[in-house]
């Protein structure tokens, strides 16, 4: 199967709305909704005409990048590329090879492609931030002349130019020509080859980095890892679902809060009781 220019253009347009940090639809709807591969797969599926297939193929990609935190504006990978280049290309590859989309092979290819195109997103992210410098410098110059309306221009309209150059055009072209290239995936890149095995392995190793980034944001001292290991055992050894593990975690959090408040009240006894927040 191939992707038409119209489909490629629509995917490029979606990548503009969903660009990582400086998304055209803002942080909540752009970055944290449309940018996530699982959400994107719904729209990719609508564009390609197979919603269940696109969602199935997006699941391993979402898992790789589930824990992506961008502290201080440094990104490891911008998911717009994973979502709007990776998902369509993985889908086309697997359909062209006649693979079962939910099977281990298709899921492996999806993970490997997701790992690969993440780097394209990183380049896009830094490109966007660089190009926006022009608009901000223009904004400062106009502000000095007392032109307040320039703020709306800098915030809403000029970044769209950045997105057309950095997101829309590259994504459209990469998806259109990429879909042609992956047709020959099978002969060019045999699954038994050592480098393909390495790529599949990479797809299973990368989620560990995402989880570790997340872990770093919740661990203050090494002994805090006890909770992490306990949570791991809840899921892996006891086979609890995430919600069930949340219930047990909530219990520990509640006990911790009671203890912290008791020691807080103890320390400030004599002073007036403060209102609850």
């Amino acid at each position: 199967m191939s992707i038409s220019w119209l489909q490629a253009g629509l995917l490029g347009f979606m990548s503009v709305l969903a660009a990582s940090t400086p998304a055209a639809l803002g942080t909540t709807v752009g970055n944290y909704t449309l940018n996530r591969p699982l959400v994107a797969s719904l729209f990719v599926g609508l564009i390609l005409g197979d919603v269940p297939g696109a969602i199935t193929i997006a699941i391993p990609m979402q898992i790789i990048y589930i824990a992506l935190v961008t502290p201080g504006g440094t990104v490891a990978a911008d998911l717009r590329a994973v979502s709007y280049i990776g998902i369509p290309l993985a889908y086309v590859t697997c359909v062209s090879q006649g693979l079962d989309l939910a099977g281990a092979e298709a899921q492996g290819i999806a993970g490997a492609l997701g790992a690969l195109v993440g780097t394209v997103g990183t380049v896009m992210f830094y490109g966007t931030a660089m190009m926006n410098l022009f608009w901000q410098h223009y904004g400062w110059a106009r502000l000095d002349k007392g032109d307040f309306n320039v703020l709306t221009k800098v915030e809403v309209f000029l970044p769209i130019v950045t997105h057309i150059v950095i997101s829309f055009i590259p994504v459209t072209i990469l998806v259109y020509y990429g879909a042609g290239a992956v047709e020959n995936f099978k002969s060019a890149l045999p699954m038994e080859a050592w480098y393909m095995k390495a790529l599949f392995t990479l797809g299973s190793l990368l989620p560990a980095v995402g989880i570790a980034i997340l872990l770093k944001s919740v661990i203050n001292k090494t002994t805090d890892l006890i909770y992490f290991v306990g949570g791991f055992a809840l899921a892996k050894s006891l086979g609890l679902s995430l919600l069930a593990a949340t219930a047990i975690g909530g219990m520990f959090a509640f006990v911790n809060f009671q203890i912290a408040m008791a020691s807080y009240k103890g320390a400030s006894s004599g002073a007036d009781d403060e209102e609850d927040i």
Binding site: G230, G231, F232, G249
Partner: peptide, 10 residues
């Protein structure tokens, strides 16, 4: 922390 552990396990 517990949820991150459970996510890693799942």
């Amino acid at each position: 922390r517990i949820i991150v552990g459970a996510m890693a396990g799942s």
